[in-house]
Simulated scan of single mutants.
Amino acid sequence: MSSVAPTSPPPSQTANVRPTIDPRDYIAPGTGFHQAVGGILAALGFFLTMLFLIGATFGIGLVVALIGLLLFFLNQKKHLAKLHGSAIKVGPEQFPDVYNILCHAAAQMGMADVPEAYIYEDNTQNAAAAKIKGKRIVLLTDDMVYGALTTKSAKVLQFVIAHELAHHYLGHSGLIRSHIAMAYKPLSRLNEFTCDGVAAAIVNDQKACGKALALLSVGPQLLPKVNVDALFEQAQQVASNKLSKKSEGALTHPLLLRRFARVMGIPMKV
């Protein structure tokens, strides 16, 4: 794996790093409204489901559902053990470049505890924020880390990691909030815009942010061949096309070029 010189101070020094941003300042417009709508729909769905389980199955369905919920919580430790036993945990002596970026980004947000980070093998450009047994975790695929590091700019990986840390900071990874967002996709898409905004503020480098999102589109092999000016022009077209936003209806994430447009400052409606 390629390596870049860390641009962050060692973890031992991050305790002295003062928070530079408040992630709450970057919440995408409309999030409060859609969070309320999602919460109401979730509560209504839960109420109707309970009525069905009690009435249509004479309470048997409710018992089965409660057992399933109990098993879910009991299996959390197993899921954590599986992750710890199959992925590589990032630390001061394991991918220290990545660990320094993680610690520094967390400190810039004012996070009291740095979430754990794991790198796992997968042929996709992806990263995720997960909460297992109350433990906040950042998941990074090997292809994502490799692709980011081959750009020779630590800020590209910083954008990816800061985006996932923002999900944790803002509570998006909580059990109830995450399930509402998965079911009510407008909220999920706004969450992504919000975390892009937080990450862009942390990185403070438009070019690096653009590269991080371009990496998601084409991967590390073709990224060096991407014409940034042409991509910017395409993003302008996407941002001005009303059908682009409408086409996201079934997606949990905004179109990548709509995300690219937003971090590059192209006028658009979220």
Rank of each mutant, 00 (worst) to 15 (best):
A5H: 14
S8M: 11
P9Q: 15
Q13A: 12
A15I: 12
P19V: 09
P23V: 09
A28T: 12
T31P: 01
H34M: 12
Q35K: 14
A36H: 10
G38M: 11
L44K: 10
G45L: 10
G45E: 08
F46M: 15
F47R: 13
F47S: 15
F47M: 15
M50I: 15
F52W: 14
L62A: 13
L62H: 08
V63E: 08
V64K: 07
G68W: 07
F72C: 10
F73G: 04
L83M: 03
H84P: 00
K89F: 02
K89N: 03
K89P: 01
V90L: 04
G91Q: 03
F95N: 04
D97S: 07
L102Y: 00
C103D: 06
H104D: 13
A106C: 10
A106K: 04
M109W: 05
M111Q: 06
D122F: 06
D122I: 03
N123A: 13
N126D: 03
K135W: 02
L139A: 13
L140G: 06
D143E: 14
D143L: 08
G147M: 04
L149M: 13
T150F: 00
S153I: 03
V160I: 14
A162S: 08
L165T: 02
H168V: 02
L170S: 02
G171C: 08
A181R: 01
S188N: 11
L190K: 13
T194G: 09
A200D: 01
A201D: 03
V203G: 00
N204F: 01
N204K: 07
Q206T: 13
G210D: 03
L213H: 06
G219A: 02
K225I: 01
V226A: 07
N227Y: 02
V228R: 04
E233I: 11
V238E: 09
S240K: 13
S240H: 08
N241P: 05
N241F: 05
K246I: 00
L251P: 00
L255Y: 07
L257I: 04
